[in-house]
Computed example of a mutant assay.
Amino acid sequence: MNNVFTAINLQGLPLPNLIKPISPEDELLEIRAEFATKFPANHPIHAALALESEPVNKILEVLAYRYSLKVSEVNRTARSLMLAYANGADLDHIGVTYYRVQRKILQVKDLTTNPVTPEILEDDTAYRDRLALSVEAETKAGSAGAYLFHALSASAQVFNATVHSPAPTEVDVYLSGQIDGDVLEQATKTVGVDQSAINEVRTALTADDVRPLTDLLRVHSATAKSYQISAVIYIKSGISPSLLLQQGLDNLRAYLRSEFKPGRRIATSRIIGALDVNGVSRIELISPATDVLVDVSQVAHCTSYDIKAMSSND
C-alpha cells in the first residue's frame, strides 16, 4: 500500500473539445467576410463594410457579440455537467446524483448563538477531490484510496490525510486539520486534529465494510515541520509592484494549500514559480534555502513570511 496510490489530477485534464474558444473579434471578421460574399464585387456594401462608422458594421458587431454570448452559455452549461469544472450547486447535483456523496459540513449552523453561527461547507476543490476519490471506497480490499476517502469524509476537522503501510497488514493514517485563516500565517495554529477527530476517523475506518479483518489500523494526528518564507520580487519598471505581489501571494497560497498534507514536501522551485507572475523580472528566494522535507507523519507548516516587491531596471 505504501506509495502505490495516485489520485486522479482533475486539474491536469485538458479542456474537452465541447468547450469552444470565444473571440468576438474573430467572429466579427468571419461574419463580415461571409456577409460580403452575398453581394457582387461592385456592390456599394463593400465600401460600407470598410468604414467602422457605417450602421451595417454596428449590426454585424452586435451579431458577433450575441453569438459569443451564446457560445459562452453553451460552454458554461457543458462545464456544469463535468466533475472537473462544475462549481457550486452544479457540483452538488453531480455529487449526489452520480456519486451519492454530499458536501461535508465543516461547521453546523446554530441559531441559538448571538450572532447566529453560520453553516460552513467544504469548498468546491475539496468536494471535487472527494468525489473523484469516492470510487475507491467501493473496494473491500483495503486500498489506500478507500482508506483516504473514508478518512476525509469521517470528520469535519480533517483537511487532508496520508495513508501509509509500513509493513504488510499494517496501516497508518495521518491527519492534517483544517487550515485556520491564512495558510501563510500559521505560527499560532496547529496542523493536526484533536482526539475526537481521531476517534471519528478510527470508527469510520474500522467499520466491517471498510477495513479488511487482517489490517492493523492506527490513526494519528500529523505533527508540524516549521519553516519560513522570505523572498524579494523584482518587478519590471513601469508595473505596479503591489499588484504583482498580490497575484504572486494568491498563487503561493493556492500552492501551499494543495500541499497541506502529511508527507508532502514544499519545493523551492514551486515557491519561485508561484511568485513568478507576468511582469516579474527575477525572484530572490532567501528562505527556505532548500526544499522543506517532511516524513510521512509531518505537515510542512509555514509560520511566517516576509515577501517584498520592488521595481527593478533589470
Rank of each mutant, 00 (worst) to 15 (best):
13 L>K: 08
146 A>T: 05
117 T>P: 00
202 R>W: 11
34 E>D: 13
153 S>Y: 03
5 F>Y: 15
307 I>V: 06
76 R>G: 07
255 Y>G: 06
205 L>C: 06
97 T>M: 12
177 G>P: 00
180 D>P: 04
279 G>R: 01
222 A>D: 02
111 L>I: 12
57 N>V: 10
81 L>W: 12
134 S>E: 00
250 D>K: 08
303 T>Q: 07
135 V>T: 12
50 A>L: 12
124 D>H: 05
11 Q>G: 14
269 S>G: 10
80 S>Q: 10
161 A>R: 03
274 A>M: 04
216 L>P: 04
83 L>D: 01
130 R>M: 03
208 D>V: 12
252 L>F: 01
177 G>A: 03
112 T>D: 13
153 S>K: 12
184 L>Y: 07
112 T>A: 15
241 P>Q: 09
2 N>T: 13
207 A>T: 11
257 R>L: 05
232 V>M: 08
265 R>F: 13
80 S>M: 07
43 H>Y: 10
285 L>S: 01
168 P>M: 05
271 I>Q: 00
208 D>W: 09
295 D>I: 04
47 A>M: 10
269 S>Y: 09
104 K>I: 13
194 D>A: 11
213 L>G: 08
221 S>K: 04
241 P>V: 08
92 D>T: 10
185 E>I: 07
118 P>T: 05
82 M>I: 13
87 N>R: 14
224 A>T: 07
218 R>C: 00
163 V>P: 02
61 E>P: 08
66 R>V: 10
299 V>G: 00
165 S>R: 03
